[in-house]
């Protein structure tokens, strides 16, 4: 390296421009600000996505947690509604049968049917106790519905038996006293 080269190297700063256009920094600042805003927007977007996901997960969790009891409640409510409907039918039929009279000597004909009825009522209480102890289970619901159907059929059978006996009684009246069926 000769002296001229050394001279240039030692005074390198003198070869630099006296100043840099202020527009250069403004452009850099602007670009960085845009970048910062872009990052901020991305953070906001991310936060929104997380918030929505959390809300979604919360709703899903709440719905799934509530679903089981809701279903059970709904089924029990449906069951109660059905029970209520069936009970109404059963009570109507029972009232009818309670008013009905048959000759006293034919009351024994009803003994088996009435025993069946009593047995069924006992069964129904068992279902209720099971639900209270173990919660609702689908098969119990089915059993209860079957119970009502069978009970109504049984009451219909009793009613039909009463009508049949009274039909023959009217045709050929007996001296037997008329009594109510103890239902």
């Amino acid at each position: 390296m000769n002296d001229f080269e050394k001279h240039l190297l030692d005074n390198k700063k003198q070869l630099e421009p006296k100043e840099v256009d202020s527009a250069v920094w403004l452009s850099i600042e602007n670009a960085m600000l845009k970048d910062k805003n872009k990052n901020y927007k991305n953070y906001v977007k991310l936060a929104l996505v997380i918030l929505l996901a959390t809300i979604g997960a919360g709703i899903y969790f709440y719905a799934t947690q509530k679903e089981k009891p809701l279903n059970e409640e709904r089924i029990l409510a449906d069951l109660n509604l059905s029970s209520h409907k069936f009970t109404k039918q059963v009570n109507m039929k029972k009232e009818q049968l309670a008013k009905a009279t048959v000759p006293q000597d034919r009351i024994e004909d009803f003994q088996i049917l009435l025993q069946q009825l009593e047995f069924m009522d006992g069964q129904f209480q068992d279902y209720r106790t099971y639900i209270e102890e173990n919660g609702y289970q689908e098969f119990i619901g089915e059993q209860i519905l079957n119970f009502y159907t069978s009970k109504i059929k049984l009451l219909d059978k009793i009613q039909s038996e009463v009508e049949k006996i009274n039909y023959y009684e009217n045709k050929n009246p007996s001296n037997s006293k008329k009594v109510n069926i103890q239902i």
């Binding site: 070869l15 840099v20 250069v24 920094w25």
Partner: peptide, 15 residues
């Protein structure tokens, strides 16, 4: 810090 780094290097980098 950005501004200071720019101030300390801009002239040299432009040169």
């Amino acid at each position: 810090a950005m501004r200071s780094l720019y101030e300390t290097h801009a002239k040299q980098m432009l040169a």
